[in-house]
Structure formats: C-alpha cells, structure tokens
Amino acid sequence: MMRMGIAAVGLCAPGLPDWPTGRSWFSGSQAYDPGMAMPELRPDLLPANERRRTTAHIKLALQVAQEALDDWQDEAEDLATVFSSSDADLDIVDKILCSLNLPGRPVSPTHFHNSVHNAAAGYWSIATGSHAPSTSLSAYEASFAAGLLEAACQVNEEHRPVLLVAYDMPPPATLAPFCPVKSPFGVALVLTPEAVSSARIRMGLELIHQKDELDAMDDAGLEILRNAAPAARSLPLLALLANEVSGTVTLPGLAGQALRLELSPC
C-alpha cells in the first residue's frame, strides 16, 4: 500500500463553488440538489489577457487548482501536477470540426492550441510560472482513479508534493448523446510525501483487482452527481475528507479494478 498525505483541497460543481461549501454539504443533513447552478468560473491567477483566450473546461481546472494552491499555502514551483480529464475540451473540438465543414476551413489557431488535452496544464504553468513536471491523462470513466494512482506514484517515486486536478465538462449538444459527462465537476488535491507536516489527512492507497463493493453516496442528489462525471467518482473520498474521520473507501477504476483508500486524520 502506498502512503501519502492530503494537504489541500479544491472543489467546484453545481451549487458547490468551493471546498468549504462542499464540506458543509457532505457533512450536513441537507439534501443536495444536482439541478443547482454552476458557480461562475473566475480563476484569477490567470492574467486577464490569457483568461480571455481560455474556455470553461480550462477555467474549471484552474479554479479548483487555484483553490487547492491557496489552501496549501506553499509555492506552486514545488508542485508537480497531474491533470486528469475524461476528454479534451469537446466544446473546442466541436468548433474546430464545424470550421472544417465551412468553405476555406477557417480553423482558429487559438482554438487549435486550446484543443490539446494538456491545455489546462499549459495555462497553469504559465499562470504560476512553475516549471515543475506535469502529466495530462485520460482513462475515460476511470479517469479519477487513474489520475489519483499516477499522482500517488509520483509522490512515492519522485518524493515531491503533487497537485492532482480532475475535471470534466459536459460536451456540446451535438456530442452529448455519445459522451458520459452530464455535469461539470472539478476537484483538486495536494498530495504530499507522508513525512510532510502540512498534511491534514493520511491516506493509504492500493490498486485492487477483485470486484469489491464500490462506495456510493447516501444522499440521492450526490449519488446522481457522482454518476454524472468521471471526476465526481471522487465524492466518497471527499465525503470522508469533509468529516475528517478515519475510514476506508473503494473507488471505481477500469473494469475489474478499484482503488482502495484508507484515511486517517493526522
């Protein structure tokens, strides 16, 4: 079992503009309504001229990353990053593909460079000035577990803190019937080598290959949200973090695989 600490959290989803708000939902008794509005995305670490060139997908990643960075209260330069998203920015892909069907095929150069899967990682490093290594990945619906596993490997093998950013945006109407993302959801976690004192929670993590019982959310609204975006498969972990109690959660990975997490407060 790999061991690490969780030192900071960022969150953004419908009705949940940040982690403190999310915590109160997860630990309270009020029923969550997945129909709530998505908070405005204003990741102000990005200069205004760069922010104008970005998209909702990129802003969602940067917003939760920024919240986790602020919460961590240390230098971005020290944070390696793992950006995990089921898809690249399909809104941008849709715009490019529509352009390809117009006379003269007027593809926008900005759209094109924003279409890469690592666009959010690129803007993050520009905004923070961080030269730290960064990986952008996908494992489709298992993207959260894949991102967490990769981040955990980096913490353990590179011996440095890692910022994991998992985020998904629903695709535009044309692609919606074909894609599993039904709700925006972004979460960011700063994972640290276990020895680091800034960690609030200790976490042990292992990849398991049997069909264990996967954790779901008790609240019906949160369970809808959990199923509405690959990044939201993190919700059982977030619920445990919100309550700062010891416990075990099992999150879905690829078919036949799961991540078993053991949490205990520092």
Binding site: S86, D87, A88, V116, H117, N118, A121, S134, T135, S136, L137, S138, A139, Y140, S143, A146, L149, E150, L207, H209, G253, L254, G256, Q257
Partner: peptide, 26 residues
C-alpha cells in the same frame, strides 16, 4: 475519439488487465 481509446484497444487486443492510461501532452 476518446483519448483512452488506443490504450483500451491495445489492452483488449493483447489480453492484458493491468493498470492503463493514455497520456496526452501533445
């Protein structure tokens, strides 16, 4: 089209069931 497609395909084609992901950093 999904980013994971080539890893998913390769895994199935080779009959492998270990961890898998696609890294997409251009």
């Amino acid at each position: 089209h999904n980013m994971f497609s080539i890893a998913d395909f390769t895994r199935h084609y080779l009959g492998l069931e270990g961890p898998a992901m696609v890294v997409s950093t251009a």
